[in-house]
């Protein structure tokens, strides 16, 4: 993956497939540590499946027997001086936590997070997505529930609304970053 935001999109797709009604995406930068946490309340995984979930030859997809989403983000974290952890309980949900050393030469850029969140909002049905960004002592939170309350019945995935969401997230993140490129 060229950007970590693409991994966020990919892992969150798993949460949606697990029928989560709440997905919390946290991106936090403290000192030299970039942490990405994706937490859902979806169907969760059994201990047996969890044990082999980082194996590329483990997948739930039916089109072929290879699943690279989890192995890719794990590899990217580990090759950029970070860590990977996954916790899951059947009926409770799954949490994927990855860390990256900000200054590591092999760390992919964070990339276009606004575009990632926007992409996730189409045909979301009743799932709530909460994205929180924290860096330089400031934070920004985007919550689909809060947006829906403003929309008064207009669908979240109206193209004009999606364009707005992308700009909203990217502008706020850029302001927090103060010109620093992550």
């Amino acid at each position: 993956m060229r950007e970590l935001s693409l991994n966020i999109l990919d892992i969150t797709e798993n949460s949606l497939k697990a029928k989560a009604t709440l997905v919390e995406i946290d991106v936090t930068v403290v000192g030299n540590l970039l942490t990405i946490v994706i937490k859902d309340n979806g169907c969760g995984m059994s201990k047996e499946f969890l044990a082999k979930v980082t194996d590329p030859y483990t997948t739930t997809r039916t089109t072929r027997s290879v699943g690279l989403g989890i192995p890719l983000i794990k590899m990217e974290a580990e090759m950029s001086g970070g860590s990977f952890e996954i916790q899951s309980t059947v009926g409770v949900g799954t949490t994927v936590t990855t860390t990256f050393a900000v200054d590591h030469i092999d760390r992919p850029p964070l990339g276009d997070v606004g575009e990632t969140i926007m992409t996730l909002l189409t045909e979301l049905n009743d799932t709530r997505i909460v994205f929180t960004y924290y860096a330089n002592g400031q934070s920004f939170c985007f919550d689909t529930l809060e947006l829906q309350q403003q929309l008064e019945g207009i669908p979240l995935d109206t193209p004009e609304i999606l364009q707005f969401v992308k700009q909203l997230i990217n502008e706020n993140m850029n302001t927090i970053n103060g010109g620093m490129l992550l």
């Binding site: 693409l6 990919d10 989403g69 992409t119 193209p159 999606l162």
Partner: peptide, 23 residues
Amino acid sequence: GMATCGISAGARPVFNTLMDEVA
């Protein structure tokens, strides 16, 4: 198509372009 294969091949900017054009 927006699975790992699609995303890594560049599906997100394609999706974004389609959305922009439609809007």
